[in-house]
Design a protein around this nucleic acid. Structure first.
Length: 597
RNA sequence: GGAGCCGUAGUUCAGCCCGGUUAGAACGCUGGCCUGUCAAGCCAGAGGUCGCGAGUUCAAAUCUCGUCGGCUCCGCCA
């Protein structure tokens, strides 16, 4: 750089800067050498500007310019001039001006880059991650990172104004059972013992309420050692919130206000509040999902009652085995779906665990279907009454255990919604899902487990059921859902020891075990724990939705592959034997050979 | 743990079904020409372990099996 100081960002220059002498520094986006005059698009964080290297102005500048290649880092001194009308580039933010270079300095060269620095490229994601610093030079990726910053800043501004304190909790903490697999960190000072990275600061934020901090938040990294998905990374960021002396409405008000502020600040999106609310039971019944996408209709119907005693064993048998039958009717679209498409839906249903996918197509007063011949007249009548089929309608059926039926049809619902353009992608439909069951029956372990977590307060109206019908107890938990994506969840917590003990007993946890696992929180509950509750929101998912990105990987600067590896840093890696010895760790690894390319 | 799709110049892809000359295209790259381009243009050129391994065959990018890796999903994720 020598004695030069940058005066401006490339992308910020405009007609207000005409005739100014500026010094710009950045990367060469592209160079166009016309033999004499050379054009260079110079790029920095804020955008592009065209520099003109003309031998009539400076032979030396032009000579230097001939060597310059894309992605080199250069500094240009020159005067901002107005372009002639016919050379204005309306596609460029700075397209009305250009910089006539009087001096050029080459600050660094670059190897030829492995992929182009521009949006709408279709490059293998592994390559993008390996060269993440280049990937992040692309405008869309850079904008995602900027959006992320704005979301975090808006979050903090909003919560600070609402009287929240940001408190940090430890990353080196204690392994807690129930829930995701922990990432473990060996303790050198305590050989044979391990810290765990937090799945969330759940217990500690409740402890802070018992401390009387009243309103807590933290933009905090969380760690879960589970398999990855497009919206799941082993480390991710939560907006973690906890409040004292509040009920569900207080939490919801704060979250609605916060999301409103976030969407406005980050992208100028206007969010309507309050959000709609839906009971968990209704969500499962009509959408087959606890995170329904409410941007379109196409609701499921339970038609089990029609086939309880049917001769068609596929249906009646499913019911006898504790299953249900549900239908998904698409009005007037029968003619638009080819047999091939229906077969594809069936294949997808099978990968989701269904044995098949039944359908009826109503056409010219007839029902075309591979299954109708098994129905009795009464069943047909009953079905018609329930579904109200008209010519041109097509209806799909799934019969299986409720989980499979809901999985298959909720998936099909989204596919069909997309297929028939029923989803308005500009819409942001927020929804509260509430009245979750407190317990979920674990068929493998043959016991009830906490659906949210074991500190979630039961619904007071359902308290009398606590001794008997565990499956029917509703909890004071709530999720916030946006366009079919769960972006947050929380609950009003238990703050009395007697209720906490009943919950533990319901999930088959003895007080001794409970003491061992969450002892400090149980003890804290005995020292004047106030009523409290909170929520945690997935920051990455919120940004993904705002940015319109297909995966949270696109809004994380340095994400990991599905195998949990970072192609840039090559983490995780083997470590020196000396490090293991210090930690008292001996490895026992089978088939460690890697014969990859 | 399971299912599906994918892996061929630097990049994105075609070729693979139906095995058979020197594995093609576009973009990028290199060199030359060119004073108004902005995805510059024109001419010329270089560039390949067809992911890896084994098998079948006279012959494999192509068929078979295995394996590694990427992505999507199921399980898992209180």
């Amino acid at each position: 750089m020598g004695d030069w100081e940058r005066t401006d960002y490339c992308g910020k220059l405009g007609t207000n800067d005409l005739e100014r002498e500026v010094v710009l520094m950045g990367w060469v986006q592209s160079h166009r050498d016309h033999g004499s005059v050379i054009f260079i698009d110079l790029r920095d964080r804020e955008g592009l500007v065209q520099a003109v290297l003309n031998p009539e102005n400076s032979e030396e500048v032009h000579k230097k310019g001939e060597a310059i290649r894309d992605e080199w880092v250069i500094a240009i001194k020159g005067k901002v001039t107005k372009r002639t009308p016919e050379t204005i580039n309306p596609n460029l933010q700075t397209g009305e001006i250009e910089v006539m270079a009087s001096e050029v300095r080459i600050l660094n060269t670059s190897k030829v880059i492995p992929f182009l620095i521009e949006d709408d490229i279709n490059v293998d994601e592994l390559l993008r991650m390996k060269y993440r610093y280049l990937d992040l030079r692309r405008p869309s990726m850079k904008n995602n990172i900027i959006t992320r910053h704005k979301v975090a800043a808006a979050t903090r501004d909003y919560l600070n104004n609402e009287g929240f304190l940001e408190v940090e909790t430890p990353y080196l903490t204690r392994s807690t059972p129930e829930g995701a697999r922990d990432f473990l960190v060996p303790s050198r000072l305590n050989p044979g013992e391990f810290y765990a990275l937090p799945q969330s600061p759940q217990l500690l934020k409740q402890t802070l309420m018992i401390s009387g901090l009243d309103r807590y938040y933290q933009v905090v990294r969380c760690f879960r050692d589970e398999d990855l998905r497009a919206d799941r990374q082993p480390e991710f960021t939560q907006i973690d919130i906890e409040m004292t002396f509040i009920n569900e409405d207080d939490i919801m008000n704060i979250v609605e206000g916060m999301l409103k502020a976030i969407f406005h600040e980050a992208k100028g999106i206007k969010v309507e509040t309050p959000f709609k609310r839906m009971g968990h039971e209704e969500a499962m019944l009509k959408y087959g999902s606890d995170k329904p996408d409410t941007r379109f209709g196409l609701l499921l119907q339970d038609i089990s009652h029609v086939f309880v005693d049917s001769e068609f064993k596929v249906f009646s048998g499913a019911i006898k085995n504790g299953g249900i039958i549900k239908a998904l009717k698409v009005e007037g679209k029968a003619g638009e779906l080819s047999r091939k498409e229906i077969d594809d839906f069936t294949d997808t249903a099978k990968t989701l665990g269904a044995k098949g996918l039944a359908w009826i197509r109503a056409s010219e007063g007839e029902w075309q279907s591979p299954i109708v011949k098994f129905f009795s007249e009464e069943e047909k009548e009953n079905l018609q009454k329930t579904l109200n089929l008209s010519d041109g309608d097509i209806v799909f059926f799934a019969a299986d255990i409720p989980h499979t039926v809901n999985l298959v049809l909720s998936n099909l619902r989204l596919t069909l919604g997309e297929r028939f353009g029923m989803i308005d992608h500009k819409k942001f439909n927020f929804l509260w899902v509430e009245d979750f069951p407190l317990f979920d029956f674990d068929h493998k372990e043959k016991r009830y487990v906490a659906m949210h977590h074991p500190f979630t307060s039961p619904n007071e109206e359902d308290m009398e059921l606590l001794d008997e019908q565990h499956g029917k107890i509703r909890s004071r938990a709530y999720d916030v859902v946006l366009n079919g994506v769960e972006i947050g969840g929380g609950s009003i917590r238990i703050y009395r020891k007697d209720i906490q003990e009943k919950i533990f007993s319901a999930i088959g946890l003895s007080m001794e075990e409970a003491q061992d696992k969450f002892g400090f929180l149980l003890e804290a509950l005995e020292f004047g724990a106030p009523p409290h509750g909170g929520i945690a929101l997935g920051l990455d998912r919120i940004i993904m939705l705002i940015a319109g990105a297909p995966s949270i990987r696109d809004v994380i600067a340095f994400p990991k592959t599905q195998k949990g590896q970072c192609p840039l840093t090559e983490a995780p890696s083997e470590v020196d034997i000396k490090q293991l010895l210090e930690l008292g760790i001996k490895l026992d690894i089978k088939d460690k050979d890697k014969n990859d390319s």
